[in-house]
Simulated assay, not measured.
Amino acid sequence: MEEHIFNIEGLTHQFADGTFAIKDLSLTVQQGKKIALLGNNGAGKSTLFLHLNGLLQPTSGTIRYKGKKIKYDRKALLSLRKQVGIVFQDPDSQLFSANVQQDISFGPMNLGWERNVVHEKVQWAMAQTEVTELKDRPTHFLSLGQKKRVAIAGVLAMEPDVWLLDEPTAGLDPYFSRQIMALLDSIHHPDKTIILSTHDVNLAYQWADEVVVMNDGKVIYQGDPVSVFHDEAVLMRAHLEKPWVFEMFQALLQSRIPAEKNLVPRTKEELLRKIQRERIY
């Protein structure tokens, strides 16, 4: 039986001005999944992340992490944040130390690790995100893409059980976008759960085990990454387009490919292999 890492029931969050960011949201997250969180601007994705890390407290409803209701005292929140790491969409919200190496070291040092362990983890995280050459540079002198990679390195060095990444590839060039996604694949295993929010349906379609779609503070879809793009009503409500691989395969099905309609390709390479096998020219 698969363990639920998060159980969310009736989650509602109302800001001081009366605006509801999340409305009676219920969601279960299974351990070990790679989950893409999709939705239009204002859907509530970032607000949900802040609740899962304990940075926001619900107006009503409950969140359980590994079966236990999240508490909001200092000791409980420290324990939660050791296990649930978050990378913000805006890295300036996350970086505050004098230079890159100090910033990446901050989290591991607060975990109480030995200094040599902290050093080892930080060096590894910098190498994985390709920021080693920036280690002595002040964080405010970095480009947006460099700041993103340093923020990710800071969480990577802490080795959390759950990753929450808010638009991790936004602002990165194609090379570093691919590197970050490859990094997430490399750290993922049955004990690691990764949830990322993105507006990139192509990325979500190719990468995720599961897709969650939000609209107006609620979950309107949770399921596999193929079925959602057959659901025109969900796509319309969430202002989502179909991934280009999905659209291309649908077009080919209508014309030349006669078989394997249920084996929908999810990457460019899978689509090309299928075309070559069917000899579509």
Results as ranks from 00 to 15, higher is better:
L240S: 06
Y205E: 00
K75Y: 04
G10P: 02
V219W: 00
V122E: 03
T169W: 12
A36N: 02
V131I: 15
E114F: 06
I180F: 14
L263Q: 14
L196S: 09
T139V: 15
G217W: 05
E210N: 09
L52Y: 05
Y175M: 10
I195H: 07
A233S: 14
L156H: 02
I104F: 07
K242W: 02
V226G: 01
M158T: 07
P243E: 05
G107I: 13
R64S: 15
L235N: 11
L56H: 09
Q31F: 03
I257F: 00
N7K: 14
Q14H: 01
K34E: 05
I63H: 00
E9M: 04
A204Y: 03
P225Q: 02
V155Y: 01
E130W: 08
I70E: 00
G85I: 11
Q222H: 12
F229G: 07
L253Y: 03
A182I: 01
T169R: 06
A259T: 12
S93K: 10
E167V: 09
K45N: 08
A238H: 05
W163I: 04
N116I: 12
Q222A: 09
G85R: 04
L184N: 13
Q123P: 01
S227N: 13
E130A: 15
W207D: 02
T169H: 02
S60R: 10
F246Y: 10
E2A: 13
K33E: 15
G61E: 07
F20C: 05
A251K: 10
R256G: 00
L272I: 14
D185C: 07
